[in-house]
């Protein structure tokens, strides 16, 4: 009875972002199943430890500060590498999108370099930089560069020439034309590049850290492998998954803020 009377009020208390919780249902079901199968002894805990064990190890490493230190090291590398590679890619994309001369001068070279898998550079990078921070930053930056470069270039090229003509006929100078027409027009494509780049960023970092590092999540996983600590290895993988999701969500929120005008983003963010 009371719930019926309170009907409207109860409705207003409903969780405002229900779909947000729904997307976590599948991972949750997997974890619960995994735990049940492990407890029942159907999965060998030596090959794949139960979620509860992983959680315990996580708490232990968190308390000792080891986990926090390594996450921070990886996170910092990811951000710095992304900023460098993305920044340079963006600048080249802009320059080649706007200037024909710049495009003729650099595009062919960049396309050649692009077709070399950047992870194939690892031996050379180690020779150049040792196993220093610079090596990881270089690899991440190189990996991130191309998706941002290509999508920025494509975005600028794809800006509606009719809008540019309109801008000119309404007296916009080059700077204003760029700020009000070309850049906003290229932004959706740039965001596609950013999301590709985020994926490549984590991939590169994992590989770089497992091969040559003295800190970071990849390093932690490799160390754990040496000592057969399967739980730590799985913990690292799960953290990578979470960080990847975090980066993706961040770029989504940014997209919703900056591309609110776009018909595809007219609904509220999920």
């Amino acid at each position: 009875m009371t719930t019926i009377e309170l009907g409207p009020r109860v409705r207003s208390f409903r969780l405002p972002r229900a779909p947000d919780l729904l997307q976590w249902a599948v991972p949750l079901v997997i974890i619960v199943l995994w735990q049940l199968l492990s407890t029942a002894g159907l999965i060998s805990t030596r090959l794949l430890p139960a979620p509860s064990e992983i959680a315990l190890v996580g708490v232990k490493l968190l308390k000792s500060g080891e986990l926090g230190r390594n996450i921070l090291a990886s996170f910092w590398r990811a951000i710095a590498g992304f900023a460098i590679g993305g920044g340079v890619g963006f600048v080249f994309g802009l320059a080649n999108g706007v200037s024909r001369l710049s495009n003729r001068l650099t595009d062919t070279t960049l396309q050649m370099v692009r077709n070399v898998p950047h992870l194939a550079m690892i031996p050379l990078v180690i020779l150049w930089f040792g196993i220093d921070e610079a090596a990881k930053l270089f690899l991440v930056a190189l990996g991130v560069f191309f998706p941002i470069y290509l999508n920025t270039l494509h975005g600028i090229r794809a800006v509606d020439p009719q809008l540019i003509e309109m801008g000119r006929s309404y007296g916009m100078d080059n700077r204003e034309l760029f700020r009000r027409v070309i850049f906003p027009g290229a932004l959706p494509s740039i965001f596609v590049g950013v999301r590709f780049a985020l994926g490549i960023m984590w991939l590169t970092l994992i590989v770089a850290e497992t091969i040559a590092a003295s800190s970071g999540l990849g390093y932690m996983a490799m160390q754990a492998r040496e000592f057969m600590q399967t739980d730590v290895v799985v913990l690292c993988i799960l953290i990578y998954a979470l960080l990847g999701k975090l980066a993706d969500s961040t770029s989504r929120v940014l997209e919703h803020l900056l591309l609110a005008w776009h018909p595809a983003y007219q609904e509220a963010p999920e």
Binding site: D160, M166, V181, P184, W261
Partner: peptide
């Protein structure tokens, strides 16, 4: 005034 409105979609 053009045949298409040519409005800036982001404004």
């Amino acid at each position: 005034m053009f045949q298409e409105p040519r409005l800036l979609p982001w404004a």
